[in-house]
Amino acid sequence: MPKKSRTSYFTQRGKYFGNLWVVFSLKVNKILRLGSDRQLAHWLLNLEYSPAIKTFSFEPGTKIVNVGGVDHRIDYHVEVIPFEGPTELHVLRTNGFSDNYEQNKQLAKNLKYQYLEFNDEHWLPHAPKIFPLLRLSSFLNGGRNAYIPSGLVETARLHIQTYRQGSLKSYLSAVRLYDQNLGLLVFFRMVVESKISLSYENTIFEINARWWLNEK
């Protein structure tokens, strides 16, 4: 029987690790098929809901670097474009770092990329965030084709721009003339778009969750 993965505790799906996750990414506006809990964790924690990330391509690839007439390969799992800094190449591992980690960092730098490796030690400390973010992803997926009144979008934008920080409760009060679920859709779309950041304790939908405007 397969050994239970440490990251299976993210989802508590028993002893089998690596089931396929099919998710919708609002940030890249496409369906993603993620082949493991690690990929799911990385998508949630370091890509989709990271205010530092503008966009990404969750497709494995290879960059070729020629040094002294010799071609070197850099294999990666995700190509990531942050709002600031060079494009990143993310490699997902079970534990530790690869033997050629430092070499790949330098090779990537020659191409003006940043090479980064992630493992269970990066994801496990943030495991309590996984279920709230999964719930949010389900909510956003369910509402991706919903009609949003332009008046709601403008009211939400003005509230965010005027106050620049606040609670989810105060935001919902500001858009109270509209359906609450639609108001939440607009709010959390702004989170994914990195227009605002969000801090919460237990559930991402709690009314005391705090938001603030990202200055970019």
Rank of each mutant, 00 (worst) to 15 (best):
G183Q: 07
R38H: 07
G142P: 00
I74R: 00
Y101H: 14
I196L: 14
L26F: 11
L44H: 05
Q103W: 14
M190P: 00
V191R: 15
N95V: 10
H42K: 01
F139A: 10
L111N: 09
I81Q: 14
G183T: 03
V175G: 00
A52V: 09
V23C: 10
K15G: 15
T162P: 02
Q161I: 10
R157V: 02
Q165F: 10
E88L: 11
I53D: 02
V78K: 02
P125F: 05
Y200L: 05
L213I: 13
N202S: 14
Y178M: 03
D120R: 01
Y200P: 11
A156Q: 02
W212A: 14
L213P: 05
V28Q: 01
K54C: 09
L182W: 03
W21T: 03
A52Q: 14
P125L: 09
G85I: 10
F139P: 04
T94V: 09
R33T: 12
L107T: 07
P51H: 10
S25M: 09
L152I: 05
F188I: 01
I130R: 07
M190T: 01
S36H: 05
F205H: 06
D120V: 00
K54I: 01
W21V: 04
R157A: 04
F83R: 14
T203G: 15
N19S: 13
S167R: 07
R135Y: 04
P2K: 08
F24Y: 15
L177N: 04
W123T: 11
S98W: 03
N214C: 12
I31F: 04
S194L: 11
H126W: 05
M1S: 15
L198C: 08
L111H: 04
N119E: 10
P128N: 08
M1L: 10
N100R: 07
L198T: 06
N202I: 11
R38Q: 10
Q103S: 08
V67Q: 10
L184K: 15
F10R: 06
Y200H: 05
S199Q: 14
T7E: 13
S57D: 12
S150K: 15
I53W: 03
S150W: 08
L47E: 00
E48S: 07
G35W: 12
G143R: 13
A174P: 03
P128A: 08
F205G: 10
V70S: 02
F139N: 10
D179K: 11
S167T: 15
L213Q: 14
T11S: 09
T94Y: 13
D179L: 04
R144H: 11
A108W: 02
I64K: 07
W211T: 01
T11L: 09
Q39D: 04
G69Q: 11
T87V: 14
H72Y: 15
F10S: 08
N100A: 14
I31W: 09
F188S: 12
V70C: 01
S57V: 12
V91P: 00
L89A: 00
